[in-house]
Design a protein around this nucleic acid. Structure first.
Lengths: 201, 201
DNA sequence: ACGCGCATGTAAGAAGTTACATGATTTC
DNA sequence: GAAATCATGTAACTTCTTACATGCGCGT
């Protein structure tokens, strides 16, 4: 139920579907990715609900642009959603489902490799967020203090990504250690390569 | 793409759709909730893919039970999935989308209330996981050490839930503090009720 | 008599993914 | 000449949610 409201939120400045896709990729992707093939029909629904209006414009390059603007009703709907309280949904983690049945493989080494590559992928994500943050800190002089409101709230979101990824990376480290302790109880000798990328938490 | 494999994983013991719903609710719900209306058709698909077989059994109470078992092919598919590496999907957080546009309300007080109720909901979730953990610790004497494999991996999952919720609660605290610091810069006097539930990290 | 647990599903729709289709202009 | 960017979409499919439909047996 969120994409319509995200588009409403982004449309506080007039924009085309194409523009919105760029905004989503730049600002929103980390907590709500969306494809053009989903954005276009959603904009039509929003229009027929009376929350948006369109006008066609010639584009300097390429075909006509269909530029959307929020109506008063759209603006009210956005505020209604914002005031409806935090919507905490059910997150789905496929990798946790995999871990739940890991004993099926009967191999602590395979479980270890699983956690090590998971850790690497989480670190890569964190690097993406960190790059975003350094980009911001160069644009805004006394970052992260004294940000204007429309930068303040996005930065709060960024912090959530960073903190939550740090916790997951720490969890990977903890789990790898637990696996290692189990491996030491076993008779065989095991190749236990050290972690590659830079630290965890 | 996960529910089929989760059912395959749970079906290492024969079970009916109804049984599986109970198992999902007990063990799996925290990272992959599923309804009966989704489980039943999925089982049929799994059967026609040759990964499961069924037999009807009379039930002591109620209608006939359709009891499923994995085939050799199903077992291999489960292992293939487990070995396919950690599948890190795109998590969607509606409340982050809401925060992103919070400046629309132009009210730090409303933003603060939002974060406070979010914090309360996250703490409630954590309490659920903690209850699960104390339940486990009573069943297994020297918890969390020396667990058998089929308890070890689920406990690793539980830890992820706990660590990741703690990080989010900490993020709420940090954000509320940041909002408070902004509120202090303003001329007006503001009612700033202290946090109700017990501590955050 | 009523509701709960057992047990099976179907139907309709929302939300999201992947692939396809088209065509102009600009940059390398 | 090829690839990227600009710009619009549609089609087919998967996944998940919510609501509906049915009926037995047990406890209070």
């Amino acid at each position: 139920m969120s994409l319509p409201h995200i588009l409403l939120g982004l449309l506080r400045q007039p924009a085309s579907g194409y523009d919105l896709k760029n905004s989503v990729d730049e600002y929103v992707r980390h907590f709500w990715p969306a494809e053009l093939s989903q954005i276009y029909p959603t904009l039509k629904r929003l229009e027929s609900a009376g929350w948006l209006t369109v006008k066609s414009e010639a584009s300097p390059r390429g075909p006509e642009r269909r530029v959307y603007e929020t109506t008063e009703a759209g603006h009210e709907e956005l505020q209604r959603w914002l005031r409806s309280g935090p919507q905490v949904g059910n997150e789905r983690f496929e990798y946790l489902a995999q871990i739940a049945f890991m004993d099926e493989l009967g191999s602590l080494e395979e479980a270890r490799r699983f956690m090590v590559t998971l850790r690497a992928r989480l670190i890569a994500r964190r690097a993406g967020l960190e790059a975003l943050e350094t980009g911001w800190s160069q644009e805004w002089p006394d970052f992260p203090h004294d940000l204007p409101d429309h930068e303040f709230y996005p930065h709060i979101n960024l912090r959530m990504g960073l903190l939550s990824l740090a916790a997951k990376i720490q969890w990977c480290d903890e789990s790898i250690e637990r696996i290692d302790r189990r491996l030491e109880l076993l008779p065989e000798g095991h190749a236990k390569e050290p972690l590659s990328a830079k630290e965890g938490s």
